[in-house]
């Protein structure tokens, strides 16, 4: 049981770090896809398609097993953070892009009529409104991300899933161990689900 809790800590660490990287990547890529330069849009599109088009586990294996071939050796944790961050960043960039596009043109035009600079309009008019639209879908991606961290056990990261398997191999108490693992993951993810639902309700009621 304490061993399992150690795994939980690793899972949470991985989730937090990967989520931060994903958030940063999503913003960079989301904005880059709105760029007026076709090259920037093109490169970002390629990044997004590659990470969305290939399987997450394949990406983990590729970074973990193939990159050493090029002299780049990353720990399982580093691999997990990097791949999960880039992968979810690619998915979430679409959320960023579409939320910004969802703000009515009149808002930008009102900013121009008040002689605001483009960056001021983005920072103080568009983004605060787009953020509210982004929050629920980004929250859903965060839940998916928590669940996806289990995959990193397959490249030997000692996370919750991995520790569960280890304990099972030693104790042979398969039913208890795997049930417990499922329940712990549920306890990690479900409060977030509930929080997002509340947020969504409040947002659609126009409060906040």
């Amino acid at each position: 049981m304490p061993f399992l809790l150690k795994g939980v800590v690793v899972t949470i660490e991985l989730t937090v770090m990967a989520a931060i990287l994903a958030f940063i990547m999503a913003f960079i890529a989301g904005f880059a896809r709105l760029s007026k330069f076709a090259i920037v849009r093109g490169i970002t599109q390629i990044y997004v398609e590659i990470f969305r088009g290939t399987s997450l586990l394949v990406q983990l294996f590729w970074v973990y097993f193939v990159l050493p071939f090029f002299g780049i050796e990353l720990s399982a944790m580093m691999t997990g953070v990097l791949v999960l961050g880039l992968n979810y960043g690619a998915y979430a960039s679409e959320v960023i892009r579409s939320s910004i596009l969802a703000i009515p043109k009149g808002q930008t035009e009102a900013g121009i009529a008040l002689n605001m600079s483009p960056s001021l309009i983005m920072k103080r008019i568009i983004l605060p409104q787009a953020m509210l639209i982004m929050l629920p879908p980004l929250g859903n991606y965060l839940i998916e991300l928590i669940k996806s961290t289990a995959l990193v056990s397959l490249i030997t990261l000692h996370d919750l899933m991995f520790c569960g398997t280890m304990i099972n191999n030693v104790t042979m108490r398969t039913i208890e161990v795997y049930s417990l693992v499922l329940i712990i993951y549920f306890l990690l993810a479900y409060p977030l689900t509930l929080a997002i639902r509340r947020l969504e309700k409040r947002l659609s009621a126009g409060r906040l």
Partner: peptide, 24 residues
Amino acid sequence: IFQQFNLFPHMTMLRNVTEAPIHV
């Protein structure tokens, strides 16, 4: 002045009016 007002929905009335004087 626009047909659809285009006020900033995330700001109070006062902030709608002070935003540009302060930042522009």
